[in-house]
Design a protein around this nucleic acid. Structure first.
Lengths: 354, 354
DNA sequence: CAAAAAATGATTGACGTCTATCATTGCGGC
DNA sequence: GCCGCAATGATAGACGTCAATCATTTTTTG
């Protein structure tokens, strides 16, 4: 009925070897004949032996030390992600997981490299990093991996790097999803989408735009792209001007940040005209309020909650030498007014003592 | 730098008491003076002591025994959920979690009660059950709780029961979300939605419809509801007839099961006419194919993957005596053709040995 | 066939917690 | 001042694994 799970001692007995030998096999310490290795493995699978992780970690006094490296700045999305990491950190203390969040100057490969190397020296078990797509970062990640540190990329992939996993959305998919929804919303009628991005050179923004283009053509055309540098003021000015210049615009897709500026434009629109359909990225305080107020229609979100959970899970799996981690992509999620989740109550808590 | 987390021995020392007394306090064994209790608690928070769950479980040889009770039948959604539970079960062996899935006759409170009582006798730590909204079930859940078994309701809430938590979507929210998307898709034009449900007496289906109604009025009207009993044949017949009878229908919302029938109708539609916008629930094999083929437009999904993960997490938190579990609702998720996740590769694995 | 090398066995302490038992101390009541 | 009881201390074994050490056996090699 409730037979306790088999232990390594059971395995040894069944294989007809000593505990020491069984241990040598399962922990790959070498110095065991092939025949014995096989018989131990046979016993393992016959009994369904699974290493008791709790006991293993206990014996090693293992304290996982993980660090999430996020870009600094006042970006609302990363502020939220930071809060999520910190909340997770407190929850994980009981599992001997020491998780900390650090920030590093955004768009600065040299600073990132330095920070990562410092972490490596301090003896960290795993790192989650918001990548940047350059050679320096790729090399740094490779070096970290070589020194046995688990590295995962988060939110933004580092193509060509041998990170253990990428946790984040596929931006082409996200753009395509927006495209499909806009096609639906136009209901077969023609239309014209105004795209707003941070910069066309930013890979994620470009990918989103690309995904959009693939889906909406040919019924719907795309107006010249506004590059808002993720700054509210520039976005505000750019959108205002574009709307004035082109009255045929039926929809706006903001693929980057600086949406406070966009929302201001929408608030200022005359109530008489039908406003364009508006889609933007990331559920944060201001976008939530805009959606609730009916200023925008759709928020497409990458669900930082799930990303954080996946990262922690993944880092732990990598730190234990367990099964390969699962790599399902994060699916960008659609919020409309009706399915908004309750406002998060997370307060940012520093460590009270150390 | 990497000071190991404090142990209970550290706490005892700091509080100036013996290990035994510290243990009495943190485990609430009583027989300790108030003054001592306070000083131990002070030491706990001063040091930031957190019980090492791994060590605790190890010492108790704790094997969590959890059971998920799902309704039987050939329902694709529950088949998927079952597979997810089974996949999770294998992953959890290393954590000494014994998770099994059982089925019980659908819509049969007596059978459900009997099954639950049997489980209680067998000494289960936690149960996740797809509820049914009746007095018998409410009482059974109360009895389970009294005997110290953690109970969570899954997919379908049992209102008025004192389950520890409900993991599932709010069906009114789901219906409202569909409503909002349909309003968007009509782009200000009038329209007429054909609703298809299993039965109007089924609370979840009724809630979805209610959510829809609240959002779409007044521009969009709602045709008489088809009750398909979740059966393909009835759905097929009903929808065929309704479409023939009422050419003004611009959208179909299927809130229940039996969607294979609906999809057949859509396949049979003449290519000349513009087909209505179609929204239905739950991403399963046939709905996925229909979406990929462009026969339908939107799938609204309750994300059984996340539900399963939450259930397991919750049961574990309840079984350890840890912090109260988080009760964020599951947000119904929108899939269009572009953001479909990769097809799950889960194979249903029975336990090879016992 | 002896010596060297490889493989295996046997055993031990540590990890942090839980549970139990028994010993000791302090204190109030009478 | 002694009894009884409450509070506290001291200690030990168990949980399953890991990482050692040292002893013993088997195999290989020259």
């Amino acid at each position: 009925m409730h037979d306790r799970p088999p232990t390594l001692a059971d395995v040894a007995q069944r294989a007809g070897v000593s505990y020491a030998t069984a241990d040598r096999v399962v922990n790959g310490r070498g110095g065991v004949s092939d025949k014995t290795v096989r018989s131990v493995h046979a016993a393992v699978s016959a009994l369904g032996y699974v290493r008791n992780v709790a006991a293993a970690n206990l014996s090693q006094q293992r304290v996982y030390r993980f660090v999430a490296v996020l870009p600094d700045g006042s970006n609302a999305f990363f502020a939220r992600m930071r809060a999520l990491f910190e909340a997770a950190a407190t929850r994980m203390i009981a599992d001997r997981v020491n998780l900390s969040v650090e920030t590093v100057a955004a768009f600065d490969p040299a600073a990132l490299r330095e920070r990562l190397e410092t972490l490596a020296k301090q003896g960290v078990d795993g790192i989650a990093v918001v990548g940047s797509d350059d050679a320096s970062t790729i090399n740094t990640i490779a070096a970290l991996r070589d020194s046995g540190i688990a590295v995962m990329t988060l939110v933004s992939e580092v193509p060509g790097s041998d990170r253990a996993a990428y946790v984040g959305i596929d931006n082409t998919v996200a753009g395509g999803t927006v495209g499909r929804l806009l096609v639906l919303a136009h209901g077969g009628r023609s239309g014209r989408i105004l795209p707003v991005v941070g910069a066309l050179t930013a890979r994620d923004h470009a990918d989103r735009l690309q995904g959009l283009r693939e889906v909406v053509a040919p019924e719907i055309t795309i107006a010249p792209v506004i590059e808002g540098r993720d700054r509210q003021d520039l976005v505000e000015a750019g959108v205002t001007q574009a709307l004035r210049a082109d009255p045929s615009i039926t929809a706006i897709y903001s693929a980057g940040a600086g949406n406070v500026g966009l929302i201001r434009v929408l608030q200022a629109l005359p109530a008489t005209t039908r406003r364009p359909i508006v889609v933007l990225h990331e559920l944060v305080a201001h976008s939530r309020r805009a959606l609730e107020a009916g200023l925008i229609d759709i928020i497409i979100d990458q669900r930082p909650e799930e990303e954080v959970a996946r990262v922690i899970d993944g880092l732990r799996l990598l730190a234990d030498r367990r099964a390969p981690i699962l790599t399902d992509p994060i699916v960008p999620t659609i919020y409309v007014r009706e399915n908004l989740p309750p406002e998060p109550q997370i307060t940012i808590t520093g460590n009270p003592q150390r």
